[in-house]
Amino acid sequence: MSNQQVPIQAEHFRIVTEPISVEEVISRVVHPHAGAINTFIGTVRELTRGRKTLYLEYEAYVSMAEKKLQQIGQEIGERWPNSRVAIFHRIGRLAISDIAVAIAVSTPHRADAYEASRYAIERIKDIVPIWKKEFWEDGEAWIGNQKETVAYPTGKPEGLE
């Protein structure tokens, strides 16, 4: 097997309004050359900084968000040979413990699958135009960047081409 970059497929990178089927996301990366599939599942957390969230709303610039998810898939393909990636992110109203994002990465060997999966979620938090609004008993607020790079001194997220 040669070290090659697998072409990405647009239908592996989706913004959805319905509940995410983790099985479906995983199924997109199943491949005979894979020896490992790593999944990351991001769920809605009830407590943030001691404050109780009742539910969340996610909003996206859907067309650009899907493009940026594809870009992340492309970057992973360049860094980890023979990897396959699928990322689904849900938008709309989500309840506590609902799945907000599911990432599946398959690679020939397990170390790469773990690393690439971590890379994917960190990049999502940097470059994909999706926003979260928390609703509490006593108020609501749009949540800004959670990686403390809010000001973007260069006008673009760090690490962007």
């Binding site: 992110h89 907000a100 994002v101 979620i121 938090k125 470059i127 135009p129 999706i130 800004g144």
Partner: peptide, 10 residues
């Protein structure tokens, strides 16, 4: 053009 506030997906 899109005006993109700090993102908070994931």
């Amino acid at each position: 053009v899109a005006i993109i506030p700090p993102v908070s997906g994931g």
